[in-house]
């Protein structure tokens, strides 16, 4: 049976400083399985830093992050097997074909049945007919679908999406929305950084707003809507 990722990611008093300036300051969060958490904020609010910390490619200056009972600082290597990252950049090799790209990442992750897994993901993201075309010939939407297949190939439990719908047409956005919905139903921990309000409206179970590295809102979309209404009424 495949090893399951712990059902919750917890950040306790997490700060990340660069010199004297804080990119993130004393963040406390719990990210649950089967829940899509949207991270929102202006440029420089600390969204990317937060994703980097969750992805283990950066370390907090203070505070700790744990996956279930597993402290990240100690078990980053183990945790990485269970993390998938989708960015607005494709993170794919343009000169390789779609199949070769997925096979490359599959082998790097040490997936035993890489060929079967690659084929099944190419089918799932609708690129089976283009499997042997080089990625540089792909449209933005095709690259993004392949990028999602790359990120999910090793069956990660924690999924980090950094602006996944940027530059996509309506069909591409629909694909991302449906996929995120499937991932939520499958009990994955999904974190999405986005400026796309359609995506927020349609999918987010929870919205986290960052402002200058600090948490300024953490709650359900309807709570945010209530807050905005109250603010308007007072204004």
């Amino acid at each position: 049976m495949a090893e399951r990722f712990p059902p919750q990611v917890t950040l306790r008093d997490v700060s990340r400083a660069y010199g004297r300036s804080f990119a993130l300051h004393r963040i406390n969060l719990e990210l649950d399985a089967g829940c899509i958490t949207a991270i929102v904020g202006d440029n420089g609010a600390g969204k990317s830093t937060l994703l980097n910390l969750l992805a283990t490619i950066d370390q907090p200056t203070s505070g700790d992050i744990s996956y279930g009972e597993m402290p990240l600082a100690k078990f980053a290597r183990k945790a990485r097997h269970r993390i998938g990252w989708v960015s607005h950049d494709a993170l794919l090799y343009g000169e390789l074909t779609a199949r070769e790209n997925l096979a490359f990442f599959g082998r790097m992750y040490g997936i035993d049945d890489a060929q079967n897994r690659v084929f099944s993901w190419l089918e799932r993201v609708g690129l089976a007919d283009d499997a042997d075309r080089r990625v540089r010939e792909f449209s933005r939407g095709m690259k993004q679908r392949l990028s999602i297949a790359r990120a999910l190939l090793h069956n990660p439990q924690l999924l980090l999406f950094d602006e996944p719908a940027t530059g996509l047409d309506q069909q591409g956005k629909r694909f991302v929305v449906d996929l995120l919905d499937d991932l939520r139903s499958a009990g994955r921990i999904v974190v999405v950084v986005t400026h796309d309000f359609d995506l927020l409206d349609e999918l987010a179970d929870r919205i986290v707003i960052l402002r200058r590295g600090k948490l300024s809102f953490d709650g359900a979309p309807h709570q945010l809507a209530d807050l905005v209404e109250t603010y308007r009424a007072h204004a």
Binding site: A55, T56, I57, R77, K78, R80, H81, I83, W85, S87, D89, A90, L91, L92, Y93, G94, E95, F105, M108, Y109, R150
Partner: peptide
């Protein structure tokens, strides 16, 4: 160069032992 062009370094950095 090819890792830089498509930001593949980030994808590789996430792979354990890479």
């Amino acid at each position: 160069q090819h890792e830089r062009e498509q930001d593949c370094l980030r994808a590789l950095a996430l792979i354990p032992g890479s």
